[in-house]
Design a protein around this nucleic acid. Structure first.
Lengths: 248, 248
DNA sequence: CGAATGCTTGATCGGTCTCAAGCGAAGTGG
DNA sequence: CCACTTCGCTTGAGACCGATCAAGCATTCG
């Protein structure tokens, strides 16, 4: 386990995320800060963990974007969620041995890896910290539920709008975005695999949204030109994200 | 809190479910048995909890079927999951105050309600029990992920086949099904709202599956006439259910 | 018996897919 | 510094899966 500045930064971010919901005691904070951490940089489309693996550690995303995915026959891919700094996309491996999906880097990104052993010891010692981590996985599940409704009962237009609303708010919540603009380093094929559509159709819908002056893109950044109308198009209700400060 | 035979039965079922994964100590078992429980029968399509509510208890399904759902404009409905005896469809309310979806009865059914306070006390006292309940919610999330891939990147035929595979195995795992036949009290509209399709199309696909001699229905019971071919059509991989005894 | 509910089927429509081609930007190597 | 390749975005034409609208039928239940 290498102890580095980036490791400390990662754990600070984790603490801040947990404290955004609830207070930690000094003791709990210290215990988290003392977690052993190793750093793992990933190149775009490289796997953090593959489908079927049995990880012995959890990845905390420190920088860049990653995504969860499943592969099907004939090269079909379903993206299950996108992740930004502060997320822990394989936290569930703490209690489910075998992974039912892969986690890969969307952009170049950096993970902080925390051994299961240490996390289990932490959660056994501090039930309140366990509850907070549990809560993180529950919010994750809420995001999946919203994703199901986005794909299942929304038009392509509405579903994509919903995704944009979510990704903007999640980034705003952790200080990665403001002013209705946020990083959006996804390719149109990624959007397609997220929404269960083809990239050709994604392209046409995005053009429609641009023509409607809802959004624009500026160098891998999403610019939301009319937040209210975007939310309406998405039938967006942010409850499921369980954010404290809903500035937007 | 009424103490009744059905309450004891409900908690026994919960204990059996938790023990199917891991062992409980005598003390833990006793603590669960002592949980206060009230019984709540529901008529078909009646809500256990509505979207936006802040429950102060969790429902353990004792008998019958229920489902999670979200409503959208113009009467659109997305069903997020189906539930059978032993499931706890609003367990997440233990750590997420506001519900982001409704839970309703599909058939007449019975819930055992356990106060959050008692569950919190239990999980704080017994970290291993907390871990097991946490695990339940993680499997739930895995089911959502599978559902996303079923809707997003499978044909109607494949998606419905996937749903049937899942619902059969989940029932088999808790002793509610065997011999490739299981209760399936869902109407075609329910299937439609689960898969993001119309009931008309569901009807046609079911006819196709019957014609292919994959399945039949006998009085609200699904009969799987060719498990292997059904799994193939579904591209079904049961890993995500994390079942111990995969007889099928 | 009538009403309600859910299943079935037909005809037609439309949203999304498929196949195909062209374009621009960003590397990469000579 | 300029081919050359690669990758992602864009657009068109035609096909298809699933939606919509509509009607009839069977079963259940009051």
């Amino acid at each position: 386990m290498v102890r580095s500045a980036i490791a400390d930064t990662a754990l600070e971010a984790l603490i801040r995320k947990l404290e955004s919901t609830s207070d930690l005691t000094e003791e709990e904070r210290r215990a988290i800060q003392k977690l052993p951490v190793s750093i793992r940089p990933l190149a775009p489309s490289q796997d953090l963990v593959a489908d079927g693996e049995r990880p012995v550690q959890c990845g905390l995303l420190v920088e860049g974007w990653s995504y969860r995915y499943k592969l099907l026959a004939e090269g079909r891919r379903q993206i299950l969620s996108f992740h930004v700094a502060g997320d822990t996309p394989d936290l569930q491996s703490l209690h489910l041995d075998e992974l039912d999906h892969g986690v890969a880097a969307l952009t170049s990104c950096t993970f902080a890896l925390i051994p299961h052993d240490s996390l289990r010891h932490l959660t056994r010692t501090f039930p309140d910290v366990a509850a907070l981590l549990w809560r993180e996985t529950l919010i994750d599940a809420g995001i999946f539920r919203a994703w199901i409704a986005a794909i299942g009962r929304r038009s392509a237009y509405g579903g994509i709008a919903h995704l944009f609303c979510e990704l903007y708010l999640r980034q705003e919540a952790v200080g990665l975005a403001a002013d209705h603009r946020c990083p959006m380093p996804v390719r149109q094929t990624d959007l397609a695999d997220a929404m269960g559509l083809t990239s050709v159709h994604i392209n046409r819908v995005l053009k429609e949204m641009r023509d409607a002056d809802l959004i624009t893109f500026e160098r891998r950044e999403l610019v939301i030109r009319d937040w209210k109308r975007l939310c309406d198009a998405a039938e967006f209700d942010p409850t499921y994200l369980h954010l404290k400060n809903l500035a937007a």
